[in-house]
Design a protein around this nucleic acid. Structure first.
Lengths: 156, 156
DNA sequence: CTTAATGATTGACATTTTCAAGTATTTACG
DNA sequence: CGTAAATACTTGAAAATGTCAATCATTAAG
């Protein structure tokens, strides 16, 4: 079996020199698929997914995001934020508060229970990230983080 | 208006120091969202999307991928490959051939028309990538590509 | 030769994405 | 002030995507 595998290369190896394998678009998609599958698996026992975790994280950040800001930052449609916050709110993890300065906006803040769960969830995703990045040294991981932020937060 | 914008920071800037903004999972998701929106826009005039482009790319690579290999490499379920190949096949861009060595497998190869379209599509996505990566120097882009491949093709 | 495993396909179902329209509120401007 | 335009959230519908189990044809294993 092991020898057979060595002879019949798997797709991942076979296409390593294809055009696609050098395409940033493709590499980010594949990295994300790997990472988010892993993260979702680790978050499931906590009743979260990558999406709800992201909302919870910002809700617990102390930065008092509005739903519009959540949509913008998470690259989602504003209408997608509604059920995400609904779920977290019904679970008692976050609260919607009308912004006194602009009552159209609703500020999302984490509750005490939300903060407790976030702490655990953050540990879970950190563990997933460790696995995902295990092929890179610490300094390479920092480099990757830096390069990706510069691309991801490009003003356009 | 311009002054107002400067005072009221947008979400992207406001959350730059949040936990999430240093999360690789999140950074890859956001980078991918930016990049794939851009790529899809450039591919639309050619009748392609990022997905069908990826299949076409491998079909035209000369590496004769089977559908199972496409699924594996593109992080998709095998059943998702079927309609993707259907579409390209109906457009005369690729062909399904039963693998003589294993007639369960179907090898996907690009037609002449497929190769012509792929050439244009590749130029389009390359242009998108140039825009997406414009904040990075050439050597930084190479570093990013290298680090991402090592994560994306991690054996697990 | 029989059984188990694999690759493609289909169909059912859930989730996610995308949009357009509606309500409440705020901003811009005459 | 008062009206019109813009903004934030919400709703709902339609399309696209993801997930999974079952089926058929073929191959591999015993």
């Amino acid at each position: 079996m092991a020898t057979k595998q060595a002879v019949t290369a798997n797709a991942t190896d076979r296409f390593l020199n294809s055009d696609l394998a050098t395409d940033i678009e493709f590499l980010t998609a594949r990295t994300r698929a790997l990472g988010s599958a892993r993260a979702n698996k680790l978050l499931t026992p906590l009743g979260l997914k990558v999406r709800s975790y992201s909302v919870l994280s910002l809700a617990c950040s102390g930065l008092a995001p509005t739903q519009r800001e959540l949509a913008e930052f998470l690259s989602l449609d504003p209408s997608q934020i509604v059920p995400l916050v609904d779920g977290l709110e019904q679970a008692g993890l976050v609260e919607r508060t009308a912004d006194p300065a602009d009552r159209r906006s609703k500020v999302i803040t984490g509750t005490a229970a939300g903060a407790r769960l976030y702490k655990k969830a953050r540990a879970a995703t950190a563990e997933g990230e460790t696995v995902t990045m295990s092929k890179l040294s610490e300094s390479e991981q920092e480099t990757l983080r830096d390069l990706l932020s510069r691309v991801a937060f490009c003003a356009e």
